[in-house]
Simulated assay, not measured.
Amino acid sequence: MQDYRNFGPEQLAIDVSFRRWQLLNEPADRVFWEDWLMQNPDKKDLVEKAAYLLIALSNHYTQPSNQEQAISEREIAAEIHRLHQSLDVPDNPSVKRFTYPWLRYSIAAGLLLMLGFFGWYAFQSLVEHRSRTITYQRLTTQAATPLLEVANTTDKPKLVNLPDASSILLYPHSRISYARKFPGSKREVYLAGKAFFEVAKDPSRPFYVYADGLVTKVLGTSFTVQTFDNHEQVKVVVKTGRVTVFARHPASRQQQQEDNSEGALVLTPNQQVLFSAPDTRLTKSVVEHPSVVEWPIEQLRFNFKRTPIAAVFAQLEKAYGIRILYDQEVMQNCYLTATLTDEPLFEKLDLICNTIDARYEQIDGQVIIYSKGCNL
């Protein structure tokens, strides 16, 4: 852990975590620096000076120039340090020092801009990333109604009760924003981090979760949504019910909330989707460890005695809520004699396929069985 109390403005300006906070408003870094400032209120001036220099430079270098060249992080750090040192003139009656710190750091930023030494390429990736990603901060500032924010700065999940009787289990280093009272015909929440939702059923008012560039719509169900620090991926995992997910369209709020948005996917229990922001790609799959959704596992009895394979697959489909596809005609002579207990679903499938000389794979949130048939 860095001892930021001993940092100078120029050191702070080039710190990776500080830059992510100031330029990208990364949730984890934001929480860290807000907590750090609460614990170190005497360092507010230090943070303001470093931020002033950093943001001034970042805002300036938004267009490339033929004269600008990419430079290394080490060169950036050296130049900021050199400039800062040159501004700290030694006490000397013949030398007039700057009376106002803001003036001194304004001149520092100006000198760097005129020299062009800092280079557009040093910040271009951060600036471009900030402009193309749909972050939590941008979403909440665009909300039509005032929002209440809850942040979990602890190391344990935190329960949040919503005004519609829905609940959220907010994971550490995550935050959620929502209206004190859901207005109109929609229930909308905004997430940064990870949260498990249990949504109260209300068919007349769909429930929307905005997480970076992904929109999740439900009427009443339970599911998990997780964003990642780089804002390039969002993950949704369904526990019960049905969930619709689609990429957020920046054109209009109405377009954001259309179920038939291009590329929308419907998820059912034990399915998940991974959203890739750079290419707005949605990849659906079965969760790593499917759980029983129909009954408690201890009440299930997977006892098969020369049971037709169609009946075996039907029971597994009902128990886990995952569709199993196979060629019924090819496998009409396949039977299973086995007792399966509380093994995970994929272990059950391994045992079944080994017994009947078949194989399986999961594609697009479904299980596909491949077989050449069974001899009588």
Rank of each mutant, 00 (worst) to 15 (best):
T62R: 14
P64M: 07
N92A: 13
M38C: 09
L54S: 03
Q63C: 09
L111F: 09
Q67G: 05
V16C: 02
Y105H: 09
S65H: 12
L115I: 00
V16S: 12
Y52F: 15
L83G: 01
N40T: 08
R74H: 09
A122G: 04
G110L: 10
Y105L: 07
A28F: 13
A56K: 07
A77F: 03
E48S: 14
F32V: 02
Y52C: 06
R97L: 13
A109V: 10
G110V: 02
L54V: 04
L53F: 06
Y4N: 05
Q39I: 02
I76E: 04
I76L: 15
Q2S: 15
G8R: 11
G119Y: 05
S65V: 09
E75K: 06
L54C: 03
V95A: 05
K49H: 10
K43V: 06
S106K: 09
G116T: 01
H81Q: 13
A56W: 06
Q63V: 15
L103W: 00
P64W: 07
Q2E: 15
K43Y: 14
W21Q: 08
S17W: 06
F32T: 01
F32H: 02
D35T: 10
K43R: 15
Q67D: 15
Q11K: 10
L112V: 00
A13L: 06
Y100H: 07
W102N: 12
K49I: 13
R74I: 08
L12E: 05
V16I: 12
L57E: 04
Q22L: 11
P93Q: 11
F98A: 00
V31Y: 11
M114E: 15
S106W: 02
L83W: 06
A77S: 13
A108T: 10
Q39V: 04
G110Y: 12
R74F: 08
L46M: 14
F117K: 11
I55M: 07
Q69G: 04
M38L: 12
L37E: 07
L54F: 07
S65W: 07
L83A: 00
L112Y: 00
V89M: 13
K44Q: 14
P64N: 06
L87M: 11
D35K: 06
K44H: 11
T99V: 12
S106V: 01
N66C: 02
I76G: 08
F117S: 11
D42C: 05
T62S: 14
A51I: 00
F32D: 04
P101L: 01
V95H: 03
D29A: 14
L12S: 05
D35E: 13
S65I: 08
A122T: 13
W36Y: 03
R104H: 00
L24N: 12
